[in-house]
Design a binder for these strands. Sequence first.
DNA 1: AGCACGCCGACT
DNA 2: GTCGGCGTGCTC
Length: 812
Amino acid sequence: MNATAPAFAEVIVAAGDVRGDQTFHYSVPDRLRDKLRPGQLVMVPFGARQLPGVVTALAASSPVEETRDLLQLVWEPPLIGARQLALARWVAARYGAPLRALLDLVGPPRLANHLHAEFAATNRSGPAKKLAASEQRVLDLLRARGVHSQAALRSRLGKTAATRSVARLVRQGLVARHVNLRFPEPAAERCVTALPVPDGQCPADLLRRAPRQRALWERLRRADGPMPAALALREASASGPSLQGLVARGLARVEKRWSASYIVDGSAGAADVGATPDAAAWTKLGRSLGGSTHDTLVVQGVEFERRTLYAAAIRPVASEGRQALVVAPDASTAADVADWLAARVSLTVADATRARTPAQRVSLWRSLRAGEIDVLVGTRDITFAPLTRVGLVIVDREEDAGHKNRVAPRFHVPICAKRLAELFRCPLLLGTETPRVATFHAIEIGQARLVMAEPRMRLTRLHDDPDRLSGVRRSSGDAEIVDTRRAPAVGRYGAVSRVLYEALREILAAEGRAVLYVNRRGMAALTICRTCAHVFECPRCSTGLVQHRQSGQIVCHICNWRGRVPRRCPVCEGNRLRLWGYGSEAVAEAVTHLLPRTAVARIDSDRPAHAMDADVSAFGHGAVQVLVGTQRLLSYGNRLRADVLGIVQADIGLQFPDFLAPERVLLTLLRLRNLTTGGEASARTVVQTMTPRHHVIQALQTNSYLRFFRTEMEQRRNEGLPPLRPLIKASFGHASETRAEEEARRARRELDTVVAAGAPLDIDVLGPAPAFIYRQRGQYQWQLLLQGEDAEKALPLFHGGWTLDADPLDLT
DNA sequence: AGCACGCCGACT
DNA sequence: GTCGGCGTGCTC
């Protein structure tokens, strides 16, 4: 026996109910001393249970007095890599999440499903007390016939009897349990291969009258091998009958076989594969690649220029045998980026969003663990993917809210990706058109470098000339600001100003197109009784009900409660009801009446996706001239290109008592502006606002991000807000108003005593205060804000019923 | 999963 | 005062 071998192991136990980032310590039995390594999967005793766990560290001593023996090593090769383990612990501490939740992110998908137990009778004799009949049956069976799997026991003895009796026998030491890790073998699925056209015939002739079949056949030809049927049909916009038609004509063969659906086929090609990045940008970026520096580089530019730079940056990294990780804000962007990259780098590119079935996801995880993938593209979860040789981390559209996980752990990708890059000692690229305030601040204090990916001057400038800032010089690319408190409105609901109306008329006469943005769905924001001033409110939330004419309902935009549009006031029974404010329905109606010969389509989540998709296509070829929509517009990306952009009410959101609201509004509006105008100064932007002096509106007017940034930083500096100091939002909701408030106050007192007791900590606590929307889904919401470098140290104090949001993107 | 602990209402 | 039902926290 090796005398220096570690005697104790620190373990993350995979129990759902362990609070905080707590680990447990076990003594290592002699037989395992030489075999145990960090990252390995083990079984440990935990109360009365035997649970899987992951070894995080080995040591000669234990911080805990009494330790129990580790039961078993399940899997010899480390299941979790050292860097992923370090990342998991860091994230758990920062976001106040149980380590178990991080294990689910870094480990194989559905680990528990792949653990298979075997049972055997031990040679220990005679039970301490008399066994139950069912237990005796299990014991007799195991003694007579040897080892049984859990499944075998269940089929012989019935499900519940087997599980219960066996568990009891294991606890008494009469039966031993041994756990094996077995991943499912990838299952076969329907794959299609294109067959060549018989000699002397042309596919164009053969499939002249079947365009869907032809599109499908051409897609299959490009695949250069068997392709999953479902994927081929989706990409060719074809359906089952088209495939059957091809098979009947002898142009395709269907067979059952395994294919890794997440491997991206680069042969689909693209028109501008040869594009090279801007020379100055490339020089600046190139210095950070290939070494062991973990620089943060902010790549600013429009989509095409950013992606060109990504492809160029990946090539030298891959040639050194290292991997690239690309995180996109949503699945469709990820798929797009993956296709783009696969067509431009001759490397193995995987798109995690295409691994949809459990078997595909396990297969991708194993493939990554084995180091078989060069470039991994996906959404936020892949930050924790089991890559082994990361040489470059890219976060595309770093300002997008899609990078924030909406359930615990509420991690934020740009922050975790930075840590990941540090752990792998590789550069981090944050791609953006308009950076977050935190990102631009990092540039200013020298923690990140700015790389302008664009050769041409664009509308959104990060640096500006002082003449323009002082208003001395105006540029043709400036937005036109309309003060709706003074400017006359035309048409219904007072939603459209004369300036916007004239702009629309002018551009439509010239056969142009327009996009109008309204940041609220429905007809009217509030319904009020003119007689008694009763406001129609949600029965479960402290918020007004929004009228939706299309469905004839009044709807709560917090909890989606719905009721019939009222005719009378329930309090005074008067029938003089007034609608207050307007939403996308009202604006679409107003524009239709103002411009009767114009085709107007509404884009918001009240309409079915396929109908909107058709409308956006029609907009693309001119059959629809005006799109009126909410944030839902943004998901149509470049298809929004227009000659006029109208922001109908820019102020919505700015009045929230939330220091992050201005940034949120500006980033949304700038993105919309970039998408609709494509950065062309000839396109007009009309902004209707009640607060023309607000720094968000001013920034929008002159396209000066810098001025917005300076004002914003000044305000945040006064309050010690992010990015100057970390901030954590803790929320508590309860159906009882008093219970909610009492718990919030109790937590505050506990925080105060703990913070005062120990070594001096940099934590300031604000609150408790009722949330901006006090009642949500019948729950009264209270909030505490923790500020300071040590704020995360207080997170383990919160439990049961509290929601923690570190690095929040909103304070509502 | 199974046990200890503490809170609260019902009873002596 | 005391008993016990039940909800909550803990298990290295």
